[in-house]
Design a binder for these strands. Structure first.
Length: 492
RNA sequence: CGGGGUGUAGCGUAGCCCGGUAUCGCGCCUGGUUUGGGACCAGGAGGUCGUCAGUUCGAAUCUGGCCACCCCGACCA
């Protein structure tokens, strides 16, 4: 078998890695830490982009584009932010190469072409964007500014994993400026809701909305909100973040506006982003030992039609029917692939499309032509049924909806079973080691405790869930008083 | 950046200790038979053994430098 992948239960990391490669999503590039997203993988990312972009537009945002390079002086303006990213920045120091005088045919960096000021390759764009906003904003009439950009960023990570952490990655970053704190907070929470809505209704991946602890929040933000998802190995994956920046960047870049009352004040900011990391989340949330399981709303191909034939004549007859089916399904906005390759056998094709996560497969052969039927197989449960040709048009869309719902429910049930409230540190450790998943525990709110717990268990506070009930308790680690439970987990 | 490992055909590998121009599987190409769950038979193509230097009559194999990747740490808003 050509495309065998290890079982999910053996070694989750290995399974993930091989699946990403075998399903044609992406592969490591020869460039250190970088990734090549292959056409099939990119087409899923495009579906994500389209859905997110629509949601951004519906909430009043516009797209724009800012430079890749950030002059060092701008980058360092917001101190906490600069410090937070300093260790993972790529820096441009020269602008020219020349032929090596001592080694013909080779190039060296021209020492005479050193830049006056180094350029940081953006690890995030707050600096360059806020330095631009300064020029755009004078009055409350110029606010709010609601801009998103689709871009690549570079973070020089020590260890990389396909989609989850690479030196360069694709993302969107929203950067907004507001006249009041309240409005900025509202924006921050609105975008968090947009992300949660996207994760749940498009990716079919339940998420927990929450606020980050001091130690985990974005450098330069007053508050960081996030959505946390659970992968099938019980580990957490931060799937999106939304930051309330307060006036930090406005102050660092001197962005002021005159209010209705004539008073001068710094503007309030937010930033929010999701990245190609969502691709990793999608893989780890739903896939099984046979390969990807894609939610219909993000599948580049909804339905694949596999003809079963012996002769050219058979294929011709089947093609006619298949084209009819395709046309009627396409009319409903579905993406249909007719796999009429005569170079592979049906069994091979079945396996290949399962590996790629196509939600629905229709098999049609001579037997079906006689009976006026087709065989319909769904990817999520592997169930097959024979239905009448006439019912295809009505049944397939229903089936796709059912699949979308089913994989969401499956993920939700799994997550529900894997969230464990604990009341002692022994229990805390035991659950993490033996059951894994998320742990809901009381925490005294101190960074010392968070750090100590991390050192002992590798688990971090994923978030303080927004819907956490007020509940008196004592911190599992320090025994001090606590008012609510927070979410701990080992994370990607 | 620390500790360990690996680098041999498109992919996965054997050979390395003990030096003599490279093994096997998948994939690929050709021909034939096949086609309702990853087909079979026969033939064939494809390799500067990561790279640079050294030792040697001779290096995938021994020695040294460099590079890359993987795993474990550290790091990762």
């Amino acid at each position: 078998m050509a495309k065998e992948i290890p079982s999910r239960n053996d070694d989750y990391s290995q399974w993930y890695n091989e699946l990403v490669k075998k399903a044609d999503l992406a592969e490591h590039s020869d460039v250190r830490g970088c990734m090549v997203i292959k056409p099939y993988g990119y087409s899923i990312w495009e579906k994500m982009q389209q859905a997110l972009d629509k949601m951004f537009k519906e909430t009043g945002h516009s797209n724009a584009y800012f430079p890749l390079f950030v002059p060092k002086s701008l980058f360092e303006a917001e101190e906490k932010n600069a410090e937070g990213f300093a260790k993972e920045c790529a820096i441009v120091t020269h602008y020219r190469l020349k032929t090596d005088p001592t080694n013909k045919g080779k190039l060296i960096v021209d020492p005479d072409a050193k830049l006056e000021e180094e350029l940081v390759v953006r690890p995030t764009s707050e600096a360059i964007i806020w330095s631009t906003y300064k020029k755009w904003i004078q009055s409350y009439r110029d606010l709010p500014i609601l801009i998103n950009q689709w871009a690549n960023v570079v973070r020089w990570e020590m260890r990389t994993r396909l989609f989850l952490r690479t030196a360069e990655f694709l993302w969107q970053e929203g950067h907004t400026a507001h006249a009041t704190s309240d409005e900025a907070v509202q924006e921050t929470l609105q975008m968090l809701d947009v992300y949660a809505e996207f994760a749940e209704s498009f990716m079919a991946m339940p998420v927990i909305k929450g606020r980050k602890s001091e130690g985990e929040k974005f450098p330069g933000a007053l508050d960081t909100y996030c959505i946390e998802a659970m992968m099938q190995d019980g580990k957490a994956l931060q799937a999106g973040t939304s930051h309330f920046l307060g006036q930090n960047f406005a102050k660092a870049f001197d962005v002021k506006f005159t209010g209705k009352d004539g008073k001068l004040d710094h503007v309030w900011g937010t930033s929010w982003g999701v990245s190609t990391r969502l691709m990793g989340a999608l893989v780890m949330a739903h896939s099984d030992d046979e390969g990807l399981v894609l939610p219909p709303k993000l599948a580049p191909i909804h339905v694949v039609i596999v003809p079963i034939f012996r002769s050219e004549e058979d294929l011709a007859k089947l093609s006619e029917k298949a084209n009819e089916i395709s046309a009627s399904l396409r009319k409903q906005g579905l993406s249909v692939k007719f796999d009429n390759r005569d170079t592979y056998k049906p069994g091979y094709k079945f396996a290949e499309w399962e590996l790629k996560g196509v939600p629905v497969r229709i098999a049609i052969g001579p037997r079906d032509l006689e009976n006026g039927t087709v065989e319909v197989a769904r990817r999520d449960t592997k169930e097959k049924q024979v239905i009448n040709l006439d019912d295809v048009v009505t049944e397939i869309p229903k089936l796709l909806d059912a699949i979308q719902e089913n994989i969401y429910q499956r993920a939700l049930t799994f997550r529900t079973n894997m969230i464990t409230p604990v009341d002692s540190f022994d229990e805390f450790k035991k659950v993490l080691d033996e059951k894994s998943g998320f742990v809901l525990a009381h925490w005294d709110g101190s960074q010392e405790t968070e750090t100590a717990v991390k050192e002992e268990t590798k688990a971090t506070i994923r978030c303080i869930p927004l819907d956490a009930k007020e509940e008196a308790g004592i911190c599992v680690y320090s025994g001090k008083a606590s008012t609510r439970r927070v979410l701990f987990a080992r994370a990607y």
